[in-house]
């Protein structure tokens, strides 16, 4: 009965590993939130950072992160969705499709620091924009495009072909079938994917160090002139994000409470990512139920 004994031991081992990982994650999250708890207040979230003295906040960085996220999604979602539609609906097996697939894989395994350097060369230097929100958004687009393409391709491919046939049988063109039947049916998957990638974009730092930059001019929210450097509408201002700020505070933070600031900022970042994750799950569930007509 040795086999049975080994089976028992193996089962115990797998439970221990799984239990350890879950406990580890819980303690990680707990630790970050506990350390950052004193900073989770409105004044920390909204006030600007201070240089060389205590009590600074993360207001501009948080705002930059959100703005950068929105702009990146505006650019990368349509293109990624388009490429996903192409791969799922038009691509025929062959060399060209293979090249696109290889491109998607190459892009998605690209180290983000390399993408950042590419951005530095092309979006910062060659365009003459300097460190800017736009350059950062384009660098993040490079990171996000392959993910978006894959997410949409998978979601579209999982739409049953009987729906396409029904639409074609009614005399719809291919484009009508795609835009009116296939993409709407794939929407739950696509939306969930977008939100999950949003979490990744929100936490990205390496690609932004040398594109969106490591400084943030004080923002004046009543200034709506897009060409003014203090206007939040100016897409060509340097825009340090929360994630970049955490990195910078650690390596060159001069404020006496640098440690607390990093703790607080990490907790905020973690909470944001957790929220994206939970929101994606919830939305996925809701949309799925609506699609299948369950109530």
């Amino acid at each position: 009965m040795k086999a049975k004994l080994y089976d028992k031991i193996a089962t115990i081992y797998f439970y221990v590993v799984a239990g350890f990982l879950v406990a580890f994650l819980i303690s990680l999250i707990g630790y970050i939130l506990y350390q950052g708890r004193t900073r989770l207040n409105l004044s920390f979230l909204t006030s600007p950072p201070k240089f060389m003295e205590a009590g600074g906040g993360i207001g501009p960085q948080l705002f930059n992160s959100i703005e950068l996220l929105v702009i990146t999604l505006i650019i990368s979602v349509p293109i990624g969705l388009g490429a996903g539609i192409y791969m799922a609906e038009y691509a025929r097996p062959g060399l060209f499709t293979e090249v696109i697939r290889l491109s998607v894989e190459t892009l998605s395994s690209m180290p983000s620091i390399v993408v950042g350097l590419f951005g530095l060369l092309v979006f910062v230097t060659m365009t003459g924009w300097g460190y800017s929100l736009m350059a950062g958004a384009l660098a993040l687009t490079v990171l996000n495009l392959p993910v978006m393409t894959r997410v949409s391709e998978d979601a579209i491919k999982s739409v049953p072909s009987s729906l396409r046939e029904a639409s074609f049988a009614l005399g719809a063109t291919k484009w009508q079938t795609i835009t009116k039947v296939v993409v709407p049916a794939a929407m739950p998957g696509i939306l969930t994917g977008i939100i999950l990638t949003a979490g990744r974009i929100f936490g990205e730092a390496a690609a932004l160090l040398y594109t969106a930059g490591m400084s943030s001019p004080a923002l004046n929210f009543s200034n709506l002139n897009p060409s003014s450097p203090t206007s939040p509408l100016n897409l060509f201002r340097p825009a340090e994000t929360l994630a970049v700020y955490i990195w910078k505070v650690n390596s060159e933070g001069l404020a006496p409470d640098a440690r607390q600031i990093a703790d607080g900022a990490s907790a905020v970042l973690l909470l944001a990512v957790l929220t994206f994750n939970l929101f994606a799950r919830w939305l996925g569930g809701v949309l799925y139920r609506r699609m299948t007509g369950e109530r």
């Binding site: 293109i79 490429a83 696109i100 063109t173």
Partner: peptide
């Protein structure tokens, strides 16, 4: 409707081509 059908195909095709262009330019510039 036919024109829209063509145009749609062209748009999604260019999105896919953009990915190739991106990889090539990444390699080229770096």
């Amino acid at each position: 409707r036919k024109r829209q059908d063509m145009l749609g195909k062209v748009i999604v095709f260019s999105s896919a081509v953009l990915l190739i262009v991106l990889v090539i330019s990444l390699f080229y510039f770096v």
